[in-house]
Amino acid sequence: MDTNTIRRALVAAGLAAGVALTGFAGVANAAPAADTAAAPASLSVQAPTGVKSEPVLGGAPGNPAAQGLGAPRPTYVDLGGASATGVYQNIAWNSWGGPIASGTAVASYSAPGAPIADAKQEQAVVFASDLGVCDGKLAYRTLSAYFPQHGEKPADARAVSVCEE
């Protein structure tokens, strides 16, 4: 899967998740620009033989404090770090099982240049991507989040690896 295909799918999924987050349905009926077109319908990832077909989010946490990894559609994820920026709460997945899963969550927002200690809990759009094998399971290996209410777009998403193998 090339970078442009991933970017188009993220933007399309982000628009859907942004509609869910903001309640502004007018965007859903707008004609997409060339760079916001959805990923091709033929785009798919097959689970390897013997691997469970419903993807999980990451796995094999190297940190015993991590929570929510290795499960399908987790509603709470804590990456086990020292700051709140790795905690995603009240996750509501709008899609799951395709090349990119999208939803909304409550996460820590820190304005550009502001200290992480000043982060506030706010609604975010989340994406799980990089579908592949992690810890022997079909898994999304990257989790990303962005805050559209602060003018952020899918390209601004903060991505973190959730597969430690």
Rank of each mutant, 00 (worst) to 15 (best):
P154G: 05
K153T: 15
L57S: 05
K137M: 13
Q46N: 13
A92D: 14
V56H: 05
N63M: 04
L138F: 10
A34T: 13
R141S: 06
I100R: 06
G86Q: 06
R73T: 12
L10C: 03
G18H: 04
G14V: 05
S44W: 04
A159N: 11
Q123V: 01
Y146G: 03
K137L: 12
V87S: 02
P112V: 08
A20I: 06
W96T: 03
A114M: 06
P61G: 07
Y109V: 08
A82H: 02
P64W: 00
T36R: 12
V87L: 04
C134N: 08
G23L: 09
G70P: 08
T75R: 14
G70R: 05
A107W: 06
D156Y: 03
A13V: 02
V56P: 03
D118P: 00
Q149S: 15
A124P: 10
G18P: 00
L15S: 07
P74D: 09
A105F: 09
G14W: 01
V87F: 06
L138T: 12
P64T: 11
P40S: 12
G98C: 02
A34K: 13
G26D: 15
D130A: 14
D78H: 10
A92R: 15
V126A: 03
V87D: 04
V125K: 06
K137R: 15
Y88F: 15
A139K: 08
G81S: 10
A25W: 14
E164L: 11
I116K: 11
T49Q: 15
Q46A: 15
L10T: 06
A82S: 14
A31C: 04
Q89A: 15
S83E: 14
A28F: 07
A82E: 11
A30L: 14
P148N: 08
A37V: 13
G98W: 00
E152F: 01
G26I: 07
E152N: 10
V45P: 00
A155M: 12
